[in-house]
């Protein structure tokens, strides 16, 4: 493939330090991989003989499955390594686990971890390429990339678009990765949520902050709703799901006031009736399921670009 010229990295840890050329390289590669998933025989030999390890310290269905499918469609061997809480209790450090896995001669490690920075620690130690599949409340770069890809598919462009991200910004790795990627590509981002769920000095990330969903939604090209976690209620971050849904839930009334061609996105899993009402989640402007299918193509692109061959070629 001719699209790997701008991607010479060992790891993909976040979108923070990716250049616009690098992001566009991934999106272009994803476009060509998208076609493979639509074939009757959904498999190419690109990563034959390479080993991809899905190292998941957190329960995840869609991201793990998406990476697994992506790897399999590229003919890589995939092992799912789910670390239960018990082995953390046993005292094996992340570093130990990483060294163990590396001893099995992995080529790419896809890691999901509940703590920010864990993949960075891993990447410093192992020779394998490391893909961050979500670290704590820090970054989720493959999600950010698939969101950009999905928007581009529908709008035909990215630069200049207005995006509104709504919900628990503080605890969202999806929001952070999207903000980094979108800022790099020249989209205008506004974040919206109660002040208790927006971290300090948010504006310095290059976004606008508002608490007024009703005002913000009328001016935007994309509305990205985030999942609200039920347990945050106990931390005094919002009083009840009912009140949250009233202030920050996307429903028919609100959607009627948005631009007619607004795109509705959600990284999933959706709390139906809380951040997004069921009829909206399933409406024609909702891209939620398309995000999922595009996720496989974007992850194929990432695996391809980070696989030893691509890395080696680009390095020379």
């Amino acid at each position: 493939m001719e699209t790997d010229g701008h991607f010479a990295r060992k790891d993909l840890l976040g979108l923070e330090d990716l250049s616009s050329e690098e992001i566009l390289t991934v999106l272009q590669a994803a476009k060509s991989f998208q076609e493979i998933s639509r074939r009757e025989v959904k498999k190419v030999p690109t990563l034959r003989g390479q080993t991809v390890i899905n190292l998941f310290y957190e329960p995840s269905t869609r991201t793990r499955t998406s990476f697994e499918l992506a790897a399999k469609r590229l003919s890589a061997d995939v092992v799912n390594f789910t670390v239960s809480e018990s082995s953390a209790v046993k005292g094996e450090t992340l570093v130990d686990t990483a060294r163990n896995i590396e001893s099995m001669h992995s080529d790419i490690i896809v890691v999901r971890h509940p703590v920010s920075g864990a993949p960075h620690l891993l990447a410093r130690i192992v020779k394998s390429a490391v893909i961050n599949a979500g670290d704590g409340t820090h970054e989720h770069p493959s999600q950010g990339l698939l969101d950009l890809f999905t928007i581009q598919e529908h709008k035909g462009k990215l630069e200049g678009l207005k995006v509104l991200i709504v919900g628990d910004i503080s605890h969202s790795r999806v929001a952070r990765s999207n903000i980094y990627g979108m800022r790099t590509l020249g989209l205008q981002v506004t974040v919206c949520g109660p002040p208790t769920l927006i971290p300090v000095e948010m504006e310095r990330m290059g976004v606008r902050v508002t608490y007024d969903f009703d005002d913000a939604l009328t001016k935007t090209d994309v509305i990205m709703m985030l999942r609200i976690q039920m347990e945050r209620q106990h931390g005094g971050l919002y009083p009840s799901l009912r009140e949250y849904a009233r202030l920050f839930g996307l429903n028919r009334d609100r959607l009627n006031r948005a631009k007619p061609d607004v795109l509705i996105m959600h990284p999933g899993p959706v709390n139906r009736g809380v951040e997004i009402s069921p009829e909206i989640a399933d409406c024609t402007r909702s891209l939620i399921l398309e995000q999922v299918s595009n996720g496989v193509a974007v992850r194929m692109a990432l695996l391809y670009l980070l696989s030893r061959g691509a890395y080696g070629k680009a390095a020379h």
Binding site: G117, G136, T137, R176, P199, E201, R204
Partner: peptide, 9 residues
Amino acid sequence: SFVSTELGL
């Protein structure tokens, strides 16, 4: 600070 906001710690 801004750093904790960016790092999500």
